[in-house]
Every structure is written in structure tokens, then in C-alpha cells.
Design a protein around this nucleic acid. Structure first.
Lengths: 338, 338
DNA sequence: GTGAAAGCGCTAACAT
DNA sequence: ATGTTAGCGCTTTCAC
């Protein structure tokens, strides 16, 4: 059983303070003899310091709390990885709370991390179009003495500031839209996660801009199976659709799977595109046209900004890039007008 | 600024004790009037309790520490997801430390979580063939007053017990080996992560059993690119290879990519198989033959076992299942003997 | 029902 | 260089 400092001090025959000075890595001078004795006893007892007691005095060291929509979702995982990589490099302890995309839980998670003395809180849950949420989040940030990093576009109340890491989601949508328009697509279906999430909403907005018209949007769970299902429904209702865009790659992969299962040739009969550029996209047949969003770098940047000392509120924007692969091509309308 | 309990008590005009009784959710009787007053002040001040002070007294509530080899690796991510899902359901706070597959860091991470008062520590880093490591891990577990769950096969010193969650990795290898042997493959190359990891070693052992001979093994980083590279090297050296097995799916996917890039027809010219059954395997062309390992369930089980009260040291074994898809087929030797 | 006071394990002033 | 002591913020006896 791990004992406490007092026990170590007693067994080593020194005072509490001396034991503390040796074991806490203080640079306070302690004679070699006593130091040795304390170290020996500590090792023998397998003394493990109580981080809570320490934190109570010094204020929690370097602990980062990360709020993500869902562990296991490639989108959030990518940011998580980036953030975690930096955290490990900087020897920060990371606590992760999954909000299940529920704003209530996100706020609750924020409080939890706050109360656990996190010095940095990264909100990677994607902003929401919702005044109440915006107000609540702002309140949390205001009451938090550490640093808050917001990934994604979040609206905040007056006077509340935070470090921000963003990607050009409108631009991502626009690139995709232009790409499809250039290929003659006039009937496009969008498979979308929740439109209340700002990143998703922004992508759809951009898509409309690039296409020059508002595409039909179907909201489903942002998963491979959600995409599969949605494709079925979209294609049943609309026989003139020539392209389908998933607001996240997994959904596009589901669309691809549906096409493969039903003898729909991609991109000959139907073009399919995704967004985010998760690693498997290029391994598929056809490989997936998508927009590269540097999610991992964004996660890493979030932590780096929070850790750098001269920044209190900045915004770092990340460029996105269209990745044209083999799942998109000319609209069939061009060759065989319906 | 988040104040402390004392400030709340003062502003509400009550004693520290009363404020605590209201805010800590104690069932101690407090008059409705005072209770209301405290609550109002706390809300107004946005009081956030200090978890460290609480933990110092009550011993940290329900916090789980999870040690994984690497956040971002599909293998670990799957277990992480399972564990995290249960943790969220049970409202446990999760801290994750990535060890970078370094045993030193794993031990250090264990100490860290221990000192932070984790009540449960899940070691998902995969066991290692290494007596020194085994001894060190045993020491850590012995000194830990909470519950330890070991995922994967770990050797422990005499008298040290822990909850264990395992999969039949030898069986997984054997299934793959038998499958290939039945298809006439006599020259098989294995792309492997570190053989010191027990799960990898077990898979290779099983593979040899199933095949009836020891295949050639090449150790590389357990990534898609590692698999790509290794395939190149394997195929350069050995022109009679008819099958390649990756000890993890990502490596097999790399092999598939290499084949696609170099006009090697799978499974006609070469069979490729993986292990773990990550979700994208079935989306590829050809879809990937692999062995399903219920990693997510294992992660979930790890936490559930740790949370259940009547278990101190159990072992739960998970069955694995061969998933034959389109990347494996008869050896070309059968039709056109070299 | 309420408040005063002890103390969780530790560190940092303050003596010596 | 070493030891003594006062807290960090909170819960929980213990008196009232």
C-alpha cells in the first residue's frame, strides 16, 4: 500500500519538510545523507505522491481537458490525436469527456474539468447555432480561470474571449460545389449530420454558393450506415440526382457502399464526394473525392496555442484543400440528357 | 472568477458547514430558507467546487485512467471507444495516457494516474515479453489500491492479481493460417508490428500452427505505410510468395495499396489478409479477409468488470472469428506451378 | 438546525 | 541545512 509523505519522513527519521523537499523536486538544499535516506525509504515503500494535495496548493499543474463530440468518430478522433500528441510531448495529463454531441453534456463536462483544476480546456465539439447554448458556453468560459480553446466556429457573448482554431468550412463546401458545377451537376443531394452544428451548416452554405443553387439536404447520423441509408432514400425519391455529397467522409463511404451494392457505377452514373479527408478515402475503389481539413494539425495547434504564454485570445485559421480523386466525374446529364 | 465555498458561505450569511451541506449534496438536514439562500448565491457566483479538495477528503470518486499504446491507432482507438462509452454511461471521468508503446512511459503513466487518485486503471498497451517489464508492472499493480484491468496477455509476478480481458490471438493466427493452407499457400510472408508485444507474437505463433510451417516475418511500424513498404521489400526478395498477412489490418491495407499501384492482382496473383477487422476492411476493393477481434467490446468489458463490485480478479476471454472476404483465394501455385 | 474546529496530504513561509 | 507551522478548499465530526 502506498503510504504518505509523513510515513516516509518518520521512517527516514527526518521532518516532513525535508522529505517534501527531496521528493517534490524542490531545489532547496538538503544534505546528501538525508536526501539519500529519504529516497531509499520512498523507493522501498513505493511512495506515490498525492496529486490532489499538491494541486490544492500549487494549483493543478498542466492538465488539459478535451471535450469531444464522440470518441470513435474519425472527425473528433483526428483532432484528439493531434492534441494528445502535443500533450504527451509537453507531459500534460489529458482528460477526455465525450459529450455525445449533447450541448447539455458539453457544459456539464466543462464544469467537471473546471472543477478538476484543468488549466486548459479544449472544446472540440463543434459550435452550435443556438443562442441559449452560446450564452451558457460564454458563462462557462468567463468563470474559467484557465485557458479555453475553441475548435470550430463558436459564437460567444460580448466581452468573452477565447483562443480559436478554425477551418474554412464554407470554403470547403464551395470548392466541392464548384467542382461539381464544373462537371455539369445540376441535381445534387447532400447527406448531412446535424445542421445545427456550425461546421456542417457552413459546409452546406458553401456548397450552395459553389453550386449556384441550394441542394437537397437529408439529415442523418454522421456514420457510414447513416450515409448508406440516406443514399437509399435520396435515390428512391429523386431519380435525376447526379451527385451526392456527404458532409463527412464516413457518410460518403456509406454512399459508395450503397452504390456498389446496387450496381450504380461511380462516377459514371453518380458522383460521390465527402469532406474531411480521412486516411482511408484514398484506399477505396473508386478513391474518394473530398476536401482535406487538417484536423490533426488543428488539434495540435489548439494545445500549442494554449501552452504558449504570450497568447490570451487569438484565432488561427487553417486552409482547406480540394482533393479530387476518382469518385467524381462529369454529370451523366451531359452525355445522355434525361 | 470562480470563488470558493467560504465566499459563498459569507455572502449567504451562513457558516461554511451549512454551505457545504447544501452544495455537496449531503443529506444532512438544512432549513429550506438557508438552503435556498446558499443555492442562490452559488448560482450567482457560478461557484465551481474544487475537486482536489474533495478528493483529498473522500478519496477520488470515480475516475478511470486508461493507458493505451497510441491514440490514433485503430487498434487502441477501438478499445478506447468501448471503455469510454461505458465510462460515460457510468459518469466516470476518464484520463488517457498514450505510452507511445514505450514500457517506461507506460509505467510512468501508471504512477501518474495512481497519484491522481484513479480508482480504476486500464492497461491497454498490450503485454510485453520482458521479465523486467513484467516485474515492474507487477510492482505497480501491487502498490495500487484501486482496481487494475489488463487488456491482452500479460505475465505477472507471483501473487499479483488483476482483472483480465483477453482475446484468443493464437486462435486468430491459426484461423488465418488454416484458411491459407486450405487454399494451397506454401509461401507466406508476414508483415508484423513488434514481436515483443504478446498479441503480435501470439498471432504469429498461431499462424505457424495453422499453416504447418513458419512463415517469413518482417517487422515494421504497424501502419498503412509500414505495410506498403514491407510489401515492397517482401516481394522484391521473395518471388514465390503467394500470400501476405498483416498482423493488423492497417498493414494489410498498405499491402493492398502496394498491389494496386504495381499491377498485382489480389487475390489472383497474391492473397492478402489482415487482423482485427477494422470497419473499413469491408469497403475496400477487394474487401479484406481478416479476423474479427471484438476490441470495442473488450474495452467496454474492461470497465464493466472493474465497476462491478463482486469481482477482484477475473479473466474474461473473447472469441475471435475468421472473416473471409475477397482479398484471399487459391494460391496461384495450384493452377500454374512454378 | 446550525456553527466551530479538526484534518485530508502536501508545500512554502517562517523560524532555528 | 533542518524543523515547525500555517494553510490550500473542502467535508465531517463534534458541540451547541
Amino acid at each position: 500500500m502506498a503510504g504518505n509523505l509523513k510515513q516516509v519522513a518518520n521512517r527516514a527519521g527526518v521532518s516532513l519538510a525535508t522529505a517534501s523537499r527531496v521528493l517534490s523536486g524542490s531545489d532547496y538544499p538538503v544534505s546528501a545523507e538525508l536526501r539519500e535516506r529519504v529516497l531509499a525509504v520512498a523507493a522501498e515503500m513505493d511512495y506515490v505522491p498525492n496529486a490532489h494535495a499538491r494541486a490544492l496548493i500549487q494549483g493543478a499543474q498542466r492538465t488539459v481537458g478535451i471535450l469531444v463530440g464522440e470518441v470513435g468518430d474519425p472527425y473528433f478522433d483526428a483532432m484528439l490525436n493531434g492534441a494528445h500528441r502535443v500533450a504527451t510531448e509537453e507531459s500534460c495529463l489529458v482528460t477526455i469527456v465525450s459529450t455525445g454531441r449533447d450541448p447539455e453534456k458539453e457544459l456539464e463536462g466543462f464544469r467537471l474539468m473546471q472543477s478538476h483544476g484543468s488549466t486548459i480546456i479544449v472544446v472540440a465539439g463543434s459550435g452550435l447555432h443556438d443562442p441559449a447554448y452560446q450564452e451558457a458556453l460564454s458563462a462557462r468560459i468567463r468563470s474559467f480561470t484557465g485557458r479555453t480553446v475553441l475548435i470550430g466556429r463558436h459564437a460567444l457573448s460580448e466581452g468573452v474571449s477565447a483562443i480559436r482554431v478554425e477551418a474554412d468550412n464554407v470554403g470547403a463546401g464551395r470548392m466541392l460545389g464548384e467542382h461539381l458545377r464544373e462537371h455539369g451537376h445540376r441535381h445534387v443531394g447532400v447527406i448531412s449530420g446535424s445542421g445545427r452544428v456550425t461546421s456542417t451548416g457552413d459546409r452546406i452554405e458553401g456548397l450552395a454558393q459553389g453550386l449556384g443553387f441550394r441542394p437537397q439536404v437529408l439529415e442523418v447520423p454522421a456514420t457510414r450506415d447513416g450515409g448508406y441509408e440516406a443514399t437509399a432514400r435520396l435515390l428512391e425519391g429523386q431519380h435525376d440526382l447526379t451527385a451526392i455529397v456527404g458532409t463527412a467522409d464516413q457518410m460518403a463511404i456509406g454512399a459508395l457502399a450503397y452504390c456498389a451494392d446496387h450496381g450504380i457505377s461511380v462516377p459514371h452514373d453518380l458522383s460521390v464526394a465527402g469532406c474531411n479527408d480521412i486516411w482511408v478515402g484514398r484506399e477505396l475503389t473508386p478513391s474518394l473525392t473530398t476536401v482535406h481539413i487538417p484536423l490533426e494539425e488543428m488539434g495540435a495547434a489548439a494545445l500549442r496555442l494554449a501552452l504558449s504564454d504570450d497568447v490570451r485570445s487569438t484565432v488561427q485559421s487553417f486552409p482547406v484543400q480540394l482533393v479530387v480523386r476518382n469518385s467524381t466525374g462529369p454529370s451523366p446529364d451531359l452525355t445522355s440528357p434525361a
